[in-house]
Write a protein that binds this DNA or RNA. Structure first.
Lengths: 190, 190
DNA sequence: TTTTGCTCTTGACAAAAATCAAGAAATCAT
DNA sequence: ATGATTTCTTGATTTTTGTCAAGAGCAAAA
C-alpha cells in the first residue's frame, strides 16, 4: 500500500481495497521546485494536492503584506477549498518552500470518486467536519490566548517545523510580527 | 412553505418538495426561555437546532472567563458540531439570550435524512464547506486586522445585533475586552 | 417608586505587541 | 569559498490593547 493510500484510509476510512486503488489511480505525482507556485491567487484552483514530501505555504496577499494562512507538511492535503469546490477565483496562493512532491487530482477526476464510491460524500463530509473543528480551535486560540501562549501551544505540537521553514512564516500564521516572534523565542530558549 | 423549509432549501438546495417535507417533519419546535441552556459543556450534544426567533450565544468557559464563540440569530443553525457528529462531550455551551424558538432535530432523526434523501450527504458536505470558508475568513481577520478593523468590519455586516445583545458578548466574539470595544465604539460614533 | 443588579463607559496606568532601524547570522548562487 | 541575499535578532520607541477601579445608565424586580 502506498503512503497516499494509507493517508486516505486514515482520513476517510475507505473500506474497500479496490475502491482505494481506483481513487489513488486518479492522482498524479508531480514535483514543484522550491519557490514555484502550485496555485496563484486570482486563478481557479483546479487541483487538490496531497503532500508526499516537502513543504507548501498557503498565503493571502494584502496591499502591505503576505499573510501566511498555513504551512502544509507531509501528509497534508492542500487546496483553496472555496475555489476548488465552487470554482471561483482563489484568494490563496500556494508556494513550495522546498522542492515538494505532491499527488494531485483535478476537479474533474475528483468528481469521479463521488460517482465510483457510493459512500464517498459521507466520508468526505466527516473529513471536512474535522477540518472545521480544527479551525474552530484556531479561532478560539485568537479569542483567548496571548501571542506567547499561541507560540507555546504551536511549538509543543509542531517542533519539527521550527527548523524547516523561515520563522517569519510561522509568525504570520500565528498572528504576530517576526520581531515579536523572535523575542518570545528568545525567552523560551533560556 | 414554512420558513424552515425555505432556509433548508437555500442552504442545502434540496430539490424534491416531498423530501423537503419529510426532512422538516423530523424537526420539533421548542422554546427556550431567556437564560436557559440549549447545551451545557461536558454533555453530549444530541441536537441540531435552527433558530426560528430569538438569540443564542455559544461560548466556551475557561478558568478565568467565558469566551463567546458566536451569536446565532434567526436563520442560523446552532450545535456543537464536534459533539453532534462524533458523539463526544461538548466543549461549548449554548444559552438563550432572549426567549428563543428553535426547530430541533435529534442525532438519530438526523441520520434518517441521510437514508431518505440520497443526495443529502453531498448537499451537507457543500453546506459545511461554506461554514469552513467562513471560519477561514474569520481566522484571516485575526491574522491581518487590528481590533478596530475587526469591529468596523463586523459592525458593517451585523448592525442589527448591536442593539439586541449585551455588547460584552460581541466584544468577546471579536477577541477584545469590553473596555476596548467601548472605546472603539465611542470613536466610531463621532 | 425604589432598590438591586447588570452593563456600559471612562480614566489612569500597565502590559503586550507593532514599528523602525541597524546589525548579525544564515543561506544561496556563482 | 566569496559575495550577495535573505532571514533573524536586538534596541529604542510608539501604538494598541488589557487591567483595575469607579461611576453612570438602564432595566428588571420588589
Amino acid at each position: 500500500m502506498t503512503e497516499l493510500e494509507q493517508y486516505i484510509k486514515s482520513y476517510f476510512g475507505v473500506v474497500n481495497a479496490d475502491d482505494l486503488t481506483t481513487i489513488v489511480s486518479l492522482f498524479n505525482l508531480t514535483t514543484i521546485k522550491k519557490g514555484d507556485f502550485l496555485l496563484k491567487a486570482g486563478r481557479r484552483c483546479d487541483n487538490l494536492s496531497f503532500v508526499q514530501s516537502g513543504l507548501l505555504r498557503m498565503f493571502i496577499s494584502t496591499d502591505e503584506k503576505e499573510i501566511t494562512q498555513w504551512i502544509s507538511t507531509k501528509g497534508y492535503f492542500s487546496t483553496d477549498l472555496s475555489s476548488f469546490v465552487f470554482e471561483t477565483p482563489s484568494r490563496l496562493s500556494i508556494q513550495a518552500l522546498t522542492d515538494t512532491e505532491v499527488y494531485s487530482i483535478t476537479k474533474a477526476d475528483y468528481k469521479k470518486i463521488g460517482e465510483l464510491v457510493p459512500k464517498w460524500h459521507e466520508l468526505e463530509k466527516l473529513f471536512i467536519v474535522r477540518c472545521f473543528i480544527i479551525l474552530e480551535e484556531r479561532i478560539f486560540s485568537h479569542l483567548s490566548m496571548t501571542a506567547e501562549e499561541r507560540y507555546d501551544y504551536f511549538f509543543e505540537n509542531n517542533r519539527e517545523l521550527f527548523n524547516q521553514v523561515p520563522l517569519q512564516y510561522i509568525a504570520s500564521m500565528l498572528g504576530m510580527t517576526p520581531e515579536t516572534f523572535s523575542r518570545i523565542r528568545k525567552k523560551q530558549l533560556l
